[in-house]
Amino acid sequence: MLKIGLLGAGRIGNVHAKAITSHAASKLVAVSDVNQEAAGKLATQYGAQASTSEAIIANSDIDAVLIATSTDTHSDLIEAATRAGKAVLCEKPVDLSLERALACRKIAAATGRPVMIGFNRRFDPNFAALKAAVDRGEIGRAELLSVTSFDPGPPPVSYIKVSGGLFRDMMIHDFDMASWIMGGLPQTVRAVASSIVDPEIGAAGDVDTAVVTLEYADGRIAVIKNSRRAVYGYDQRVELLGSEGLLSAGNMIENTVVKSTKDGVVSAKPEFFFLERYMRAYAAEWAAFVGAVTGSGVVPVSLDDGVNALALAEAATRSAKSGMAVEVATVM
């Protein structure tokens, strides 16, 4: 039985607490948060103890930590936890700074402890099935990937100001998806971005609408589209054209009822947000982490994967500002 310390009791911490306590081979024993009341409430809900991050990391009875704190603390906590001999599952991104993430990777690697980054979309049953079909060669050589990721509405501007920007906060999931599906990093990144959803987002120095093109050395292409506003719900789709066919994974909808009349055909909208769409993915992600820690020790989403996605976010940020393509090798 893995004994787990949860660092962070916010919205995503609550999601992870449910996954931890629902797994037969893991037990939530301690919760920390800068908001002590939130930590106490979540700990009580699941029969754990409220504590501090420092105490959890120092506790030799705790086998692993799940880091769901603010992004600017991730690298420090990864380093501290791995130095203390603990396995780590950390929410994305590794850090707001690529340079800091690279340093963190070096330190964590020296400890030999497993570190997994929380790119939960890899564990969505539909996306996972698409990836498995690619790996089986069912559409031949993958040639053109399209990833659509639209939020139903923008987060508060107060969040935007500390998020690291759309490329590091939102599109980083899609950068990881592209690298996962296409089997590696692109050679160049081209980004076009603007703020047309909410002028306050632009005033805060961020964008809310973006298209990024990833160009691979062998000629393959991936296109990622992001928007902070889709009034009809959480739009999450992947389409992959190959030399021998097409694979696509569509939206999860609120229900499967379809009404067909002389006036037309109407179906339900996509599920409204990530909590509805990806709950199964979070459970599968946690199961994969537990399996890796108790088995081979090789996690399915590594710290390298986290650094690679952050490098693409950095390249996209530079490209959007300069209007020029950016070589990925120049940012690593």
Score class of each variant (00 low, 15 high):
Ala110Arg: 04
Asp33Phe: 10
Arg190Gly: 10
Ala325Glu: 11
Arg113Phe: 11
Ala68Thr: 15
Leu28Phe: 00
Ala142Pro: 15
Ala315Asn: 12
Gly242His: 14
Asp63Tyr: 01
Ser194Thr: 14
Pro270Tyr: 12
Val299Gly: 15
Ala108Pro: 07
Ile12Asn: 03
Ser75Lys: 13
Asn251Gln: 14
Val293Ile: 09
Gly306Lys: 08
Arg113Tyr: 05
Tyr159Asp: 04
Ala43Ser: 12
Gln187Leu: 15
Gly306His: 02
Gly295Arg: 01
Gly137Gln: 06
Met182Ile: 08
Tyr46Phe: 15
Ser97Ile: 14
Ala48Lys: 11
Ala217Glu: 13
Gly323Trp: 01
Ala48Gln: 09
Lys225Ser: 05
Glu244Cys: 09
Leu312Asp: 12
Val65Ile: 14
Ala193Glu: 13
Trp180Lys: 09
Gly153Lys: 10
Leu6Gln: 11
Ile20Pro: 03
Asp218Ala: 03
Gly250Lys: 10
Val298Cys: 04
Ile224Asp: 08
Glu244Tyr: 01
Leu98Phe: 05
Glu143Ala: 13
Lys225Pro: 00
Val257Gly: 06
Ser243Gln: 05
Gly183Pro: 08
Asp95Phe: 03
Ile224Cys: 14
Ala133Gln: 06
Gly112Pro: 15
Pro199Ala: 04
Arg220Tyr: 02
Thr82Leu: 00
Leu166Asp: 12
His16Pro: 00
Pro152Ala: 05
Glu79Asn: 15
Thr52Val: 13
Ala142Cys: 12
Ile67Lys: 10
Ala142Asp: 13
Val293Phe: 03
Tyr216Met: 06
Gly297His: 06
Arg122Ile: 01
Lys131Val: 04
Leu42Glu: 07
Phe273Ser: 13
Thr82Ser: 11
Ser70His: 08
Pro114Ala: 09
Ile181Glu: 06
Asn14Leu: 04
Asn35Gly: 11
Thr111Gly: 08
His74Tyr: 04
Glu79Trp: 03
Leu7Glu: 09
Gly137His: 11
Arg237Pro: 00
Ser26Gly: 06
Gly183Leu: 08
Val34Gln: 08
Thr317Pro: 00
Ala287Asn: 08
Leu42Trp: 06
Lys225Ile: 00
Gly219Trp: 03
Thr111Trp: 13
Val15Thr: 09
Met1Val: 10
Val290Arg: 00
Thr21Arg: 02
Phe175Arg: 03
Leu247Asn: 12
Cys104Ile: 09
Leu310Met: 05
Glu37Ser: 12
Val15Ser: 11
Glu54Gln: 15
Ile253His: 13
Asn255Pro: 07
Leu241Tyr: 07
Asp33Gln: 12
Ser322Leu: 03
Val307Thr: 12
Ala101Phe: 02
Asp33Trp: 15
Gly10Asp: 08
Arg318Phe: 01
Arg220Ala: 12
Gly250Val: 04
Leu240Ala: 07
Leu42Arg: 06
Ile67Ser: 09
Ala309Asn: 13
Ser26Glu: 03
Val197Gly: 11
Lys92His: 02
Gly8Cys: 05
Ala204Pro: 14
Asp305Met: 02
Pro155Ser: 08
Glu327Cys: 02
Thr209Gly: 00
Val298Pro: 01
Gly242Thr: 12
Glu99Leu: 06
Glu138Arg: 10
Thr188Ala: 10
Arg228Thr: 05
Ala55Lys: 15
Leu102Glu: 09
Gly295Met: 05
Leu2His: 01
Leu98Pro: 04
